[in-house]
Design a protein around this nucleic acid. Structure first.
Length: 138
DNA sequence: CGCTTGACCGGAA
DNA sequence: ATTCCGGCCAAGC
């Protein structure tokens, strides 16, 4: 019976289609802004047959998995976790990601966290205004 | 073939 | 504030 109930974790029913949606959203993130894995997952509708509650629990990891092999064109550095921190990935790159974001104007505090209230972006802001949605510069 | 390990998240201790 | 745990599939070693 398809993906009803408790049957989905590592991948969506159609991983390629799902990843495509993830990349599409990530590509929209402006320089100097960030989104979280869970936020992106919440913007994508649960695939047919997937229980919404299960989706809510599992989808953030699908997004993470998708980001693991994202194309070079995708600004992967603008995706961080719900705590406002850069996710620790196997090997290295945390420093690289942080540096890339700092070059875009994102500020990290002593605890290596980003103020999401200030830098988190959502597609709703897109194109609404030509006003720079820039975080204020102190 | 079995064990380990995931670009996550929210709630509990 | 921080650490631990459940969720429960699939690819890699």
């Amino acid at each position: 019976m398809l993906y009803s109930g408790a049957m989905a974790y590592a991948s969506a029913p159609d991983p390629k289609a799902y990843e495509a949606q993830v990349y599409q959203i990530v590509r929209m993130i402006p320089s100097g802004r960030v989104m979280t894995y869970g936020q992106i997952a919440a913007l994508i509708a649960p695939p047919p047959g997937v229980d919404p509650i299960q989706y809510h629990k599992l989808a953030p990891r699908w997004v993470g998995t998708a980001m693991a092999h994202c194309p070079d064109e995708v600004p992967w550095q603008r995706v961080i976790n719900s705590q406002g921190k850069v996710s620790e990935r196997p090997g290295m790159g945390m420093m690289v990601q942080r540096k890339l974001l700092e070059q875009e104007g994102v500020v990290f505090d002593e605890r290596e966290r980003v103020d999401l209230k200030r830098y988190q972006w959502s597609p709703g802001e897109a194109g609404q205004t030509s006003e720079p949605a820039q975080p204020r510069l102190l």
